[in-house]
């Protein structure tokens, strides 16, 4: 059954085979995607026609690699900008949230906490459409009363940022709260006794302690924003993010350039994951 008990041979071997199959199931699509990014064929399929870097560096007509593909490059740039603002906003607000729920007492705290958790159980598509509707309602109201056309209320860059922020901030709040729970509050009391005010205490002591958690949460927020599809789908304007651009390409047929982008994404996210992991190991 378990390590400390005698196991029959078929049991151990059967289990090993099952777990082996499970892991191949897990990695097969990723490995195939990566390998085919280097196949010298106009379709992301076998047979193998030799190794090439064309789908990364090529600039010939019909064989444009990702580094010369303006549509995908600009989508990657948009995604970076969105992810930057989302992680900045959500780390600030999420840290405020962590302080609020861990250190402050006020009426309706339970209700507000429950509301803070809600974005986790609301499907992303619903978040997307409700924010789209509400922005539209606001836009119409502002236009009718002040005769102003506010671009923020139309689908576009900032609406995507706000839509992603609305649920990623919850995640940051939870991660930072978990760290804040371990904080020894006598340190704050000592600083207060020595004449610091509350803001100084937070800035010099509590935030220093929270820094690894905030950086880790920021990295996860960046990644989640970079990859978000469901919420973004309804809020996106003329500046498409990478998942949206890729989705349109995958739906209408595919080229090995998509494999090349996927390869870069897989390598990039794995690196970010490793960095995040070493950070969280250090803080323990």
């Amino acid at each position: 059954m378990i390590r400390s008990l005698p196991n029959t041979r078929p049991y151990t071997i059967g289990f090993k085979i099952y777990v082996g199959l499970f892991f191949s199931f897990l990695f097969l699509p990723l490995v195939v995607t990566c390998v085919l990014a280097f196949n010298d064929s106009p379709f992301p399929a076998l047979p193998w026609k030799g190794f090439t870097l064309t789908w990364f560096t090529g600039d010939q007509p019909g064989r444009v690699g990702i580094f010369h593909d303006t549509v995908n490059l600009s989508a990657i740039w948009v995604s970076f900008k969105v992810a930057f603002w989302v992680s900045l906003l959500s780390t600030i607000v999420g840290t405020c949230g962590a302080f609020l729920f861990e250190q402050e007492q006020f009426r309706f705290k339970q209700a507000l906490y429950f509301l803070m958790l809600a974005p986790l159980v609301v499907p992303g598509v619903i978040l997307g459409i409700s924010i789209l509707l509400f922005a539209n309602t606001l836009g119409v109201a502002v236009e009718n009363t002040f005769n102003l056309d506010v671009p923020l209320f139309r689908p576009g860059f900032w609406l995507v940022v706000l839509g992603q922020f609305s649920f990623i901030a919850t995640l940051v709040t939870l991660v930072v709260s978990a760290r804040l729970k371990k904080f020894d509050r006598t340190l704050e009391e000592a600083a207060l006794n020595l004449g610091a005010n509350r803001l100084e205490v937070i800035w010099h002591i509590t935030l220093k302690f929270l820094r690894p958690a905030i950086i880790g949460a920021g990295a996860v927020a960046f990644l989640m924003s970079f990859e978000n599809f469901n919420t973004t789908l309804f809020l996106v304007g003329s500046e498409a993010t990478l998942p949206i651009t890729l989705y349109l390409q995958v739906r209408d047929g595919s080229t090995p350039v998509i494999n090349a982008i996927s390869f870069l994404l897989i390598v990039g996210t794995s690196l970010l994951a490793l960095i995040n992991l070493t950070f969280s190991r250090k803080k323990e």
Binding site: P44, L246, I266, L272
Partner: peptide
Amino acid sequence: PFWVSELVRVYGWMI
């Protein structure tokens, strides 16, 4: 694998 975008994983299954 779960750090990688869902789109990439679905695309992997497609090819």
